[in-house]
Design a protein around this nucleic acid. Structure first.
Lengths: 318, 318
DNA sequence: ACTCTGACTGAATATTTGCCCGTCTAATTG
DNA sequence: CAATTAGACGGGCAAATATTCAGTCAGAGT
């Protein structure tokens, strides 16, 4: 038995040596084989043994490393097809620049494709900031379609008109939705959606190859409330019904199920549909949004996420 | 200028991402290229940039039995407070990579301390190689001080200017010594050392929390001779007086006692003082240096040693 | 405005690595 | 003692990686 133990340790020792020569000294496996007096193949086995026995530890000495780790953990935990985490600026935790750049990079990659794509967009400050980061491009092959109306109920234009801004920058055909965000009633909503133009836009949205949306929280600081789309009373009613977040004004509860009735009866936005093959990517940052993001992920309302380090940490500890 | 910096950091960010995906997540470079939206070659370049910028750290978590044994034996036999032995590359026994990495790890540990430290440095190829292995850091709390002049007698700069190189990499305050290594006479030496700046630097060196030095041999291959600091005649005289090695140009005999007179009268370097509480660590590799290292240890001119396997073996058999 | 320089890129190519598979050895078992 | 089998070995090959080379582009300096 003692000889078995010795052989074992000497084998690991050799593995360590091989691993050292390979990873630290930068030798090729061929050279290692010569130096250790074994065949090339054996050297390869020793190196891979060193790896599989966890003798070699690799880590990255760069702030980005933490972000990569967080994104992998988030993707694993919530079954996301893609997840990106931007470094937070510790001085300005609510800053959007990091995520905006990341999102812009993602969008740009899509746009660079020669194959025509339909890109659907929600609204929100984060999405708006991302679009601002896009370089000027020329992409007449793609179509950009809005997921939700661009009017207040009184006909005023909504802020953050992302579709037009983006189409401006990248010169693509675009389809803003000429509707109020909320109709005054379910009947009106159905009526409005039967217009041919609107119908076509909704159909286009349904076919989108990729979708980018923001996520809103519900409560005193909710974008829906602050921007005047829903009243304080409606907000109270929504909270009572369990609402924690919204995507393109569709309000959902903490397991990501759409709230029945209330404002959801009147939302004119395209339906939230996620097929596993089509990315639906949320861009969302901030402590206030943690619950909403969690809910959206639980309910599979999204299958991709772009956020920042601080938010990611909170998502994983909740 | 700020845009240049931004571009630089974003390039390093990308490199870190690529490195992480490659070494930590085990992606293939092809996959990385797809994920980062660049070509395969660019991905490869990013990965190798991450390596050359020292963003990826590899560390073998296995005490290679022989090296551990050697370092323990050395520490016991010569009363060293610390001793590290790197595996040797059998084909390139003079290679510095192993010890350089070990030493860099040691130095990095020092630098990571928040508590301000004074780090004193000698010169030499090994020390230089070690400093090259340091990652970029930001350590304004520490001070790096040179133990010896950085000029030839005629005013030319000496090679291996370790202090400046290191300060460059880690962004610390630094104190190179604006003196020739050897004065022309003892009188001139005293005169030079009375300059206020020099005086302050010598005082700083005396207070150093940790000291790293190289060890040179004496003879035909002596760094002092090869680099032109002492003449062939002086070398002969030194050998006749029993000299076997030098640290920061202080020449000593085989029991580690400083040689009286000769070049030692004119050395402008800080005095060799070792207090048991403050590490004085030599980085030295090679057969030629064995006698010098032995002498330095016998004379307690150092209390720590970083060397390689082959050298360690010789140190123990002599 | 012009060239020059240096850095970067993709394509082509050379090298290295990972893996499958047939063979061999040595240990175990009936 | 013979048969069986687990495990290591090395050959060979496809995949992955590194390097070289020529072309491109932006910016610096006439």
């Amino acid at each position: 038995m003692s000889s078995a133990g010795d052989q074992e340790t000497s084998r690991l020792d050799d593995a360590a040596r091989a691993g050292w020569l390979y990873y630290v000294a930068g030798n090729t496996q061929d050279e290692i084989a010569r130096k250790l007096g074994v065949s090339r193949q054996s050297a390869q086995r020793l190196v891979s043994l060193a790896v599989s026995e966890k003798l070699v530890k690799v880590w990255l000495d760069h702030p980005i490393a933490r972000c990569m780790e967080l994104s992998r953990d988030l993707a694993d935990r919530f079954g996301l097809a893609s997840c990106q985490v931007a470094p937070s600026d510790p001085d300005a935790p609510a800053a959007l620049t990091g995520v905006a750049q990341l999102a812009a990079g993602d969008i740009e990659r899509m746009l660079k494709s020669d194959h025509p794509k339909i890109i659907a967009l929600g609204t929100g400050r984060a999405l708006r900031a991302s679009v601002e980061q896009l370089p000027k491009m020329d992409c007449p092959q793609h179509r950009i379609v809005s997921l939700l109306g661009n009017m207040m109920s009184d006909g005023a234009a909504t802020p953050y008109n992302v579709v037009i801004r983006m189409a401006d920058r990248v010169n693509a055909r675009h389809y803003p939705m000429p509707l109020p965000v909320f109709a005054r009633s379910m009947e009106e909503k159905l009526l409005l959606q039967q217009q041919e133009a609107v119908h076509n836009i909704l159909e286009l949205a349904r076919q989108a190859d990729v979708t980018y949306v923001g996520i809103g929280n519900i409560g005193d600081t909710a974008p829906l409330l602050v921007d005047g789309f829903v009243s304080r009373e409606e907000t109270r009613a929504l909270i009572k019904a369990g609402a924690v977040g919204e995507i393109t004004s569709w309000v959902f509860d903490r397991s990501g199920r759409l709230i029945d009735g209330l404002t959801n009866d009147r939302v004119a936005s395209a339906n939230l549909e996620v097929s596993p093959a089509k990315p639906v990517i949320a861009i969302a940052v901030g402590m206030l949004k943690v619950d909403a993001i969690l809910a959206a992920m639980r309910g599979r309302l999204i299958n991709g996420l772009i956020t920042d380090e601080a938010t990611a940490e909170h998502l994983l500890t909740h």
